[in-house]
Design a protein around this nucleic acid. Sequence first.
DNA 1: GATTCTGTTACGATTATTGTAACAATTAAA
DNA 2: TTTAATTGTTACAATAATCGTAACAGAATC
Lengths: 138, 138
Amino acid sequence: MALNTQFSIAVHLLVGLGCVEGGTTTSGHLAESVNTSASFVRRTLAKLSKAGLVETTTGKSGACGLAKKPERISLLEVYRAVDAPEAFAIHAYAPQKVCAVSCNIKAALENVLAKTQQGMEASLSKITLADVIADVRR
Amino acid sequence: MALNTQFSIAVHLLVGLGCVEGGTTTSGHLAESVNTSASFVRRTLAKLSKAGLVETTTGKSGACGLAKKPERISLLEVYRAVDAPEAFAIHAYAPQKVCAVSCNIKAALENVLAKTQQGMEASLSKITLADVIADVRR
DNA sequence: GATTCTGTTACGATTATTGTAACAATTAAA
DNA sequence: TTTAATTGTTACAATAATCGTAACAGAATC
C-alpha cells in the first residue's frame, strides 16, 4: 500500500458508515470494504471518534456510526482528525552562521507552508461528507 | 531528516542562488547551506534545470544560477519541477464487488484530491521566489 | 460467565526517501 | 595536452515513516 493514505482511508470509512444499512457496522466489515486490517481501521476510527465525527459502542454488539449528519461533516474536520501530514515538510538542518539564507530560510519556508496549507484546507472545508456520498451513489 | 522535503530543499536552493554573490555557485557550496549531501543537491538541481528554472555549466569552473528573475519564478513551478508528492495519496485496494462504496469510492476520492490539489497549487502560484527572498533578507 | 465488540499497545514488515559512492562527460586552467 | 574541478547520472545502502499483525484489557450483551 502507498504511504500517507490515512486521510483517504478515513474518508472511505466515513462514506461506508454513511451508506450502510441501519447506519452502523463493525470495524471488521469496514476493513473488508477498505481492504486493510481491522486493527488499522480501529485505530483510524478511534481518532475520528475522539474528534466527534464517529460514535462507537463497545461490548458485544458494539458498532460504529456517524456522530453527525454527513452534511455537517467537512473533509477539513476529517483531515484534522486523523492528523494527516501537512502540505510539505521543511527540511531540518543546522543553520550556517555565515550564511544569511541558511539562517533565515526556515522562517520564510514556514510562511510558505502556512499559505499553502491554508489553500489546501480552504478546499477541504468546502467539501462535505454528503458531497462525497452523493458522488459515490451516482 | 524528515521525509518529503524535496520541495523545501528546492526552494532553499533557489533562494541561495538568488542571494549569492555573482549569481552563481556550485552544488558543493549549496550543500553546505542546506546541510545535505552534494549529490542530493545535484539531483534536485538537475530537475530544476530540466524545468528551466536553473542554468548550469559543466566542466571546470562549472556552476549553477537562476535561469529567470526571481520575480518570474512561482513556487508552483518549483513544486512541479521536483515532482513533490500530491496533497494526499489514495489507498490501493481491491474493490469488493458486493460493496457499492468500495466500487465507487476511488473515483470520488480522485475528485476530492483534484480539488484539494487545486487549492494548494493556487496558493503556491501566488508566491514568487522573489517574495521568499525578500522575506529572508528582512 | 461466555462471547463479541472497541481501544490500545508493541513490534515486525514494508515502502519511500535520503545519503553515499562511484564514474562518465565536460570544460577551464595549468 | 594534461590536469583538475565541476555537473549529470546511476546503483546501492542507510534511514525513517507507514502499515500489518498480534495480543490483550475493558465493556456490554447474551
